[in-house]
Design a protein around this nucleic acid. Structure first.
Lengths: 231, 231
DNA sequence: CGAACAATTGATCCTCATCAAACCTTGTGG
DNA sequence: CCACAAGGTTTGATGAGGATCAATTGTTCG
């Protein structure tokens, strides 16, 4: 079933778009459905479309020549991804996008976004805002990776996830549905280290872990760890 | 002496600006002169101005709470920096900018850039291009830091510097004027490790090092190292 | 129930940070 | 023009923090 174009207003880059703009985008889009583990696109593919996630969850990642992966960010509903290609023409995607669960997304022609940007300053502006916040985040993560020890990086990664997508449970605690593999890729370490750190935290009642599930009992303590004097 | 406004066209974000635009920017700017080691601005300061470097060299860096530094990028003549603040209002600089040598720069009101962006799509577009390429670069560096060993990271850092600012010498070799401290901050390691790696390379005739000076003899070999199977 | 896959845990090893000390280069002032 | 100071560089010794490997133990789902 087709989406109501006005729903697109939830996308941060479209917050100031006109109703007409939204309709036009819809007209230039197709809906794609991607199974868990499958890819929206691969790093290096020509960036013909950009996407808006309608349902499910996905991750943006980079791979190095030897196949090791790094998570750049997690994508939730109504977030835009793959849009960098709309700016440079003839661009290729600088990262791959993989569905974490069965997902659907709106695929919109990059060319068309580029066209719209030329005549709609509010769109450009909102896209720049998005880019800016993204630059800030990745700069911070870069610094973390360069200067901070694993435990703090893992704490930070969890906190970031928390602020982006925590799901409250009945008792007021917060559950994240993530693989330790994912967490490792997000904090630049290995599943072994993640497991050890989480076990340690669990002993002290900070978190509870299960298969693809992390329950945060004391977020406040995590903040403390992430800010501890490096020493 | 005042700058010819047309020279501003060399700034990549201004490549499509009109002569009139450039004049207006100049009118809303002041020239600042910064001594070596001094700062244009600090991380956290309100981002009132953005800058265009007129002469000298500077670096953008982040510091963590314990004072450890990370180099984000080096700024050369006619490059713009500190412009992220122009997009979000009430923003603060996400990094500090320090002069590597005596430098002068044009300081332009962020507010004014924001105003201009509203009515000049080509400016927005060119600024987005800049942001995009920056995002790509730092994503790559992030992945490198997460997955690659020091030697390759140092090789990569040198190659990046090379492509940005190498100065040819008489014999056709390439000289970079950098402290090993700088190189360490750029590749997320320490001066000790940098020194050891460079010494090793020097033994094999890849580079020649001196005080604040690195001469690249065989860039091709560096590329090889940076691409070696991680094995 | 069994297969597939996520998580745990111990043992080992390797890369790199850290510390200390000496060395070298450059620019300055007497 | 030399001597010295300041600060960049080198090198060795040491150790810690994590990666890696291997094996076991959960957990989920068809």
């Amino acid at each position: 079933m087709p989406i109501d174009s006005l729903q697109l207003r939830q996308v941060s880059v479209f917050q100031n778009a006109t109703d007409e703009d939204l309709r036009l985008f819809i007209q230039h889009s197709v809906e794609r459905s991607i199974e868990e583990e499958e890819f929206f696109f691969f790093q290096g593919d020509p960036a013909v479309y950009f996407y808006v996630l309608l349902s499910g969850r996905a991750k943006l990642m980079q791979m190095n020549p030897t196949g090791q992966q790094v998570n750049l960010r997690t994508i939730n509903e109504w977030q835009m991804f793959g849009a960098l290609g709309a700016v440079r023409d003839n661009a290729t995607y600088p990262a791959s996008a993989q569905a974490l669960e069965h997902s659907t997304a709106l695929a919109i022609k990059s060319d068309y976004l580029r066209e719209m940007l030329q005549t709609r300053p509010y769109l450009s502006f909102d896209l720049m805002k998005l880019m800016t916040s993204y630059i800030q985040e990745i700069q911070e993560r870069y610094r973390e990776l360069a200067t901070e020890k694993v435990e703090r990086r893992i704490a930070h990664a969890l906190l970031r996830l928390l602020s982006q997508m925590g799901t409250k449970t009945v008792e007021g605690n917060i559950v994240l549905t993530f693989t330790q593999q994912d967490l490792a890729e997000m904090s630049g370490t290995t599943i072994y280290t993640v497991s050890r750190v989480l076990s340690e935290w669990e002993k002290h009642g900070l978190v509870e872990t299960g298969r693809e599930r992390i329950l945060i009992r004391k977020p406040h303590e995590l903040v403390k760890i992430s800010e501890e004097s490096g020493q």
